[in-house]
Lab assay of single mutants.
Amino acid sequence: MATGGRRGAAAAPLLVAVAALLLGAAGHLYPGEVCPGMDIRNNLTRLHELENCSVIEGHLQILLMFKTRPEDFRDLSFPKLIMITDYLLLFRVYGLESLKDLFPNLTVIRGSRLFFNYALVIFEMVHLKELGLYNLMNITRGSVRIEKNNELCYLATIDWSRILDSVEDNYIVLNKDDNEECGDICPGTAKGKTNCPATVINGQFVERCWTHSHCQKVCPTICKSHGCTAEGLCCHSECLGNCSQPDDPTKCVACRNFYLDGRCVETCPPPYYHFQDWRCVNFSFCQDLHHKCKNSRRQGCHQYVIHNNKCIPECPSGYTMNSSNLLCTPCLGPCPKVCHLLEGEKTIDSVTSAQELRGCTVINGSLIINIRGGNNLAAELEANLGLIEEISGYLKIRRSYALVSLSFFRKLRLIRGETLEIGNYSFYALDNQNLRQLWDWSKHNLTITQGKLFFHYNPKLCLSEIHKMEEVSGTKGRQERNDIALKTNGDQASCENELLKFSYIRTSFDKI
Rank of each mutant, 00 (worst) to 15 (best):
H28N: 07
E33I: 06
P36S: 06
D39A: 12
I40L: 04
N42G: 04
N42Y: 13
N43W: 09
N43M: 08
L44P: 08
L44K: 08
L44T: 11
L44I: 11
T45R: 15
R46M: 15
L50Q: 01
E51V: 07
S54V: 10
I56L: 07
G58V: 00
I62A: 01
I62C: 02
L63V: 14
F66Y: 14
K67S: 05
T68P: 07
P70M: 10
P70H: 06
E71G: 06
S77E: 07
P79I: 04
L81M: 13
M83D: 02
I84S: 00
T85P: 00
L88N: 01
L89T: 06
E97Y: 08
L99H: 01
K100R: 11
N105L: 02
L106C: 00
L114Q: 08
Y118K: 05
L120A: 12
V121M: 06
F123A: 05
L131A: 15
N135S: 07
N135R: 08
M137Q: 13
T140H: 07
T140R: 08
S143F: 06
V144F: 02
E147D: 03
N149A: 12
N150S: 10
L152Y: 01
A156Y: 15
R162S: 07
I163N: 01
I163Q: 03
S166I: 12
E168M: 08
N170L: 09
L174N: 09
D178P: 05
E181N: 10
G188T: 06
K191S: 10
P197Q: 14
A198I: 11
N202Y: 12
Q204S: 11
Q204C: 02
Q204M: 09
F205A: 05
H212L: 14
H212P: 07
S213A: 04
S213E: 12
S213P: 12
C215P: 10
Q216G: 04
K217M: 09
K217F: 14
C219K: 03
P220S: 04
G232C: 12
G232W: 07
L233S: 13
L233H: 10
H236I: 02
C239G: 01
C239N: 01
C239H: 00
L240G: 07
G241V: 04
P246R: 06
D247L: 07
D248F: 02
R256F: 08
R256M: 08
Y259M: 12
L260F: 05
L260I: 13
L260A: 08
C264K: 00
C268V: 00
P270D: 11
P271E: 14
F275V: 03
D277H: 14
W278M: 00
C280F: 01
F283I: 12
S284P: 01
S284F: 01
Q287H: 15
C293D: 03
R297Y: 02
R298G: 12
Q299D: 09
G300D: 11
G300P: 13
G300C: 11
C301R: 08
H302T: 13
Q303V: 08
Q303A: 07
Y304I: 03
V305T: 08
I306S: 02
N308I: 08
N309D: 06
N309E: 08
C311K: 02
S317N: 05
M321E: 01
M321L: 03
S323T: 11
L326C: 05
L327K: 15
T329N: 12
C331E: 02
P336V: 13
